[in-house]
Write a protein that binds this DNA or RNA. Structure first.
Length: 689
DNA sequence: TATCCTCGAGTTCA
DNA sequence: CTCGAGGATA
């Protein structure tokens, strides 16, 4: 009671102060996160403060101010966007693609400035060219009042309500000497991670996915309902000031950028000042090397003559400034034609549709094929044979068909029809109800599957038969020389001669490789059989647990499930394989042919605690290219020392060993705070063991 | 039952 | 490398 009356009297004043305090606090955290890139509090704490402010404002609406972070999430949807005329037109930049374009730009600047050839090189402000949407923001007396899209350059759309939801756009400028009027230009974009998360959410809800982060950003910014924009994690980077009344007078672009940062705008950390054509080229190379590992897409870099006085002297040509240029990187996306969709048959009979593309140069290579994964994926993308399609090849090497360009449809495109029978053996294609992949039901009757099974058996991690590649297997199977892995051991020189590209020398080499493979390990042998759901690591577990092949052959479902990482599904796969008479026959024939391995007693339930070294019992993940050894070699060393090598980074990972060009795994290791070693670090650790 | 962690499988180009 | 799915675990 007393407390309530106390609040009643002292309340409004106290609450006003608290609201102000919360607003300052929230703005400070957002600034640390988006501008300084250095989060000061966990998200949960931010949310708590945010909710407190929301509650306060709900109880006392008179406390709401337009720059309150609670006002970012807008009210009701608009009917449409108002058109606004830009006070200063939003121009485009000329493009450079080659080193010659660059030297020509530098020369034009010097000539335009009438600098003698011997003068100091021109100073350029260089920065990345974000692949997003250009926007303009207006602040009056330090408060955000309006934001608009570029439109046709002369006028754009008023998307203020949506821009308010972009947390990296300050609603109130920071600092003392704030200009009475400020117009800032910059780029709105979506980070790659946010784009992927968004597409996953869209797909899960059965809504359309976006082709790339730029389209996603554009789609999000043009939402009439700003509550949707608010959920889209857009980001903003500022790159110029076009109007300022009051505030600081900057003599150069680089100084303007520093000022923008002080006012609370995020500006790119990649910005730099470089000198002359050589400096431009070096900057282009440096940023290009980082392109794939940046958290957002860039399509080039931009150079601006740094000094304002020099910019003014150079002036404009038609619609573009003479003092700036955009230097583009090779596209990571290109358009090409989807000539046909064929299907491939995999080892397990999986039928995979493959896009045959009109060759296109993208991301540094010529792409002609791309997997379409499965029928669902293909339908989701809505591809038709004959479509013009977007092909992407980013840092992740494997090209991808992003989707069709619907505007280019002529009507003569055909739907792809999943074949009903296997194109290789004619068996029915079946698709289990709950699975994404369709499979050829022919099993080993299907030559395609037989070939894949042989290749799998011969591969390095299995029986390691050197030189037995796909061309050779094709011939051996097509000429009926080989049907099962056991047949390999019955081959002799007479049988091999007469094949294409197979004279005495290569025949002897192959026979020797087959001979060498007779001596192996139980784990390799089990893996080589190619049992469904039994990969390298499960094969190792099985070998360790059972010790002998006979023990494995006679195990029932229950005994199989005693093995770590073997559950009902894997156990069933094993039983199914072993129940097939012809599979058992092949196994027997292989043993008779002299394929052998050291057998040992079944492993005790839990192995005696491994010698306690620095490596024993630890889990490692290898990534990138190590300076002096292959990842396989490193893995062998770790395993020999009692450590475990795994494929993915998680909380349970003890060390990540990273070499050159380490990718996402290194990023993840840093996120999770997992210790990262280089090759020397690993060797040092092995020494201690 | 939901979530996390791994493993298996499939794939491109120089 | 990435996806999908099996297995383990809370």
């Amino acid at each position: 009671m007393d407390q309530l009356s106390f609040l009643d009297s002292a309340g409004p004043r106290a609450e006003e102060l608290r609201a102000k305090e919360l607003r300052t606090e929230l703005a400070r955290h957002a600034h640390a996160y988006y501008v300084l890139d250095n989060p000061t509090v966990p998200d949960a704490e931010y949310d708590r403060l945010f909710r407190e402010l929301q509650a306060l404002e709900a109880a006392h609406p008179e406390l709401i101010s337009p720059d309150s972070p609670t006002q970012r999430v807008g009210g009701r949807p608009l009917d449409g966007f108002e058109t606004v005329t830009h006070a200063v037109p939003m121009l485009s930049l000329n493009n450079a693609f080659t080193e010659e374009d660059l030297t020509a730009f530098d020369r034009r600047c010097r000539e335009g400035l009438e600098l003698p050839v011997v003068a100091e090189p021109v100073a350029y402000a260089a920065e990345p060219k974000f692949d997003g949407l250009a926007i303009t923001l207006i602040y009056q007396d330090g408060v955000f009042v309006q934001g608009a899209t570029r439109g046709d350059g002369a006028s754009g759309e008023d998307v203020s309500q949506n821009l308010r939801t972009v947390r990296s756009i300050p609603l109130r400028l920071r600092g003392e000497n704030v200009p009475s009027l400020l117009e800032v230009r910059g780029e709105v974009l979506m980070f790659r991670q946010a784009f992927e998360d968004l597409n996953k959410r869209q797909a899960a809800r059965g809504e359309k996915t976006f082709a790339n982060p730029r389209n996603a950003a554009a789609g999000s910014l043009r939402q009439l309902d700003s509550r949707i924009t608010a959920e889209r994690s857009l980001r903003f980077f500022a790159y110029s000031v076009v109007r300022a009344e009051g505030g600081r007078v900057c003599a150069s672009h680089s100084e303007t950028m520093s000022w923008l940062r002080e006012l609370g705008f995020p500006v790119s950390e990649l910005r730099d000042v470089v000198y002359g054509a050589e400096g431009l080229w070096a900057y282009y190379q440096k940023v290009g090397a980082q392109r794939d590992s940046l958290p957002f897409d860039i399509d080039g870099v931009v150079y601006k003559v740094d000094q304002k006085t020099l910019q003014d002297r150079l002036g404009f040509v038609s619609r573009a400034p003479r003092w700036a240029i955009a230097h583009k990187y090779p596209a990571q996306e290109e358009l090409t034609e989807l000539l046909d969709i064929e299907v491939q048959v995999g080892r397990t009979g999986a039928i995979t549709p493959v896009a045959r593309l009109k060759p296109v140069f993208v991301g540094g290579v010529t792409v002609t094929n791309a997997t379409l994964h499965n029928e669902d994926e293909l339908r989701r993308k809505g591809l038709r044979i004959g479509d013009t399609v977007i092909v992407r090849r980013a840092g992740d090497v494997i090209p991808e068909v992003v989707g069709p360009v619907l505007d280019r449809r002529t009507g003569s495109e055909r739907e792809f029809v999943m074949p009903l029978v296997c194109p290789v053996c004619g068996s029915h294609i079946v698709r289990a109800e709950d699975e994404a992949v369709a499979r050829c039901s022919g099993g080993l009757y299907c030559p395609a599957q037989r070939k894949q099974a042989l290749l799998h058996f011969a591969q390095r991690r299995a029986m390691d038969i050197e030189g037995l590649g796909d061309k050779l297997v094709d011939q051996l199977v097509d000429t009926d020389r080989v049907k099962t892995p056991a047949d390999l051991y019955a081959l002799n020189i007479g049988a091999l001669l007469g094949m294409e590209r197979m004279a005495e020398k290569s025949a002897l080499n192959l026979l020797e490789a087959i001979e060498k493979s007779r001596s192996t390990t139980l784990a390799r042998f089990i893996f080589g059989l190619g049992i469904r759901n039994v990969g390298e690591s499960t094969a190792k577990d099985l070998a360790r647990h059972f010790g002998t092949l006979d023990a494995l052959l006679s195990a029932d479902l229950e005994q199989l499930q005693q093995v770590p990482d073997v559950g009902p599904v894997v156990a069933a796969s094993l039983r199914q394989f072993l129940a097939e008479e012809h599979n058992r026959a092949v196994v027997e024939q292989l043993r008779k042919a002299g394929v052998h391995w050291p057998e040992h007693a079944p492993a005790a339930a839990d192995e005696a605690a491994a010698p306690g070294g620095a490596v024993a019992g630890k889990t490692f993940v290898l990534t990138g290219t190590l300076p002096t050894m292959t990842r396989d070699a490193a893995a062998a060393l770790i395993e020999a020392a009692g450590g475990k090598v795994s494929g993915s980074v998680s909380k349970k990972t003890d060390y990540v060993v990273a070499g050159e060009e380490a990718g996402s795994k290194l990023v993840k290791a840093n996120q999770l705070g997992v210790a990262v070693l280089d090759e020397d670090g690993l060797l040092a650790l092995l020494q201690q063991n």
